[in-house]
Amino acid sequence: MQLKMSKSSDKMTAFEGQDLQTQALREKAMLFCVAIAIPSLILILWEMTTRMGWVDELFLPSLSGIVNEFFAMTRKGYAGTPLLSHVLGSLRRVFTAFTVGTLVGLLLGLLMGYYKYVRAAFYVVTELLRPIPPLAFITLFILWFGIGEVSKVLIILYAGALIVMLNTMAGVQSCPKDKILAAQTLGANDLAIFLYVILPAALPSIFTGMRVALSVDFGILVAAELLAGDLGIGYIIQDASTFFNVEGLFVGILMIGFFGVMSDFLLRIIASRVVHWQG
């Protein structure tokens, strides 16, 4: 009798377990639908407001108008330069600045995290620079490095490097003490501990820093291109604004958003592969 009862209760739990699983799956599907439905709704509303003439096209162009403008740009280019050149010009600036900035930030961050004296040496300078928006330096950079490519890349590089550096330093310092002690009792010397313990322990922080830096880099890119030059997505935004080409302005804005999202997505995939043990 007792055996029977326990058996049936086992069945119950198994059944409930399955139910919970399908429930969880259903909830996931619902969340996905909401995530897709709301932006779609916004797009439909957008198109409607402009079609119905509720809002002046000068303030908010129609979606179809923006799409048309985009295709027109791909055919004719913008301001005499092919659209692809504008895009590649911007991406090259971000990519160069981000790569070099990450390397510089990584190196400084590792040194600062590991050596107390390096940290002390840089402490006041970094604490002073940290609260200053990098854009505050932009005209200074133009003054120092000219109005060309160098000052643009350098200002982006500086902004990203600072973020990567601070995150790397925090990552190195957050390495659990017992892991370092464990490595020592297994015979590891300082170099081995740095390579096999401290550096991998800091990787999650480093990737977080890189992702933040990349998104900041895109922001600085647009600002730098707004200010000077005749090439890049930022230039399109600035130039289109001057001529009240609101559709062109939107094309520029959406392109920045697109490339920002895509590059972050890429970085996130790389991060989840490299630091797979994190969450």
Binding site: P176, K179, L181, A182, G187, V197, P200, L203, W277
Partner: peptide, 16 residues
């Protein structure tokens, strides 16, 4: 030293 091993309560394994 490697002549004296240590096992910590937190296991201190290398997650990577």
């Amino acid at each position: 030293s490697a002549r004296r091993g240590v096992v910590f309560q937190s296991n201190a394994l290398f997650d990577w």
